[in-house]
Amino acid sequence: MKKTLTNEIKCSFLSLSQNESLARGIISSFLLPLDPDIEELADLRCAVSEAVTNCIVHAYAGTVGTITLSARAYSDRTVKISVADKGCGIDDVAKARQPLYTTLPDEDRCGMGFSIMESFSDRLTVTSRTGKGTKVTMTRKLSSPTT
């Protein structure tokens, strides 16, 4: 059976740190009707929080720009969540994805953002162009509801 798109959202907000919880709230509201289990919901909330924090701390460091959060749900219970910015971009994506790698050790950044996003999704893709921006896309298939 071919999978079909069952829902889609797209929203934009400024790269202000109080919008980290806003983004988590939006993704929770999107996921809840799909009946995820508690762990799946918590994993994806955390992964979105990491992606949005990266936009604020790195992409738009010291400036304010727009972050776009989009999410799609498919009939096979796959969800695809993207977080995109038009910030500084990442010169070396492979390096940025390494555990413990951070450009800001003095600011208590532990360098685990991408590792957490990887752990909490089935698939993480990162596309970035220096000076143009970055888009991370996380895909995860939700388990079947137990009831």
């Binding site: 919880s21 929080s49 924090t53 950044r109 532990c110 360098g111």
Partner: peptide, 13 residues
Amino acid sequence: EFMDSSGLGLILG
């Protein structure tokens, strides 16, 4: 109630 890598960074720091 919620923690991500920023909270972990706080602990490590």
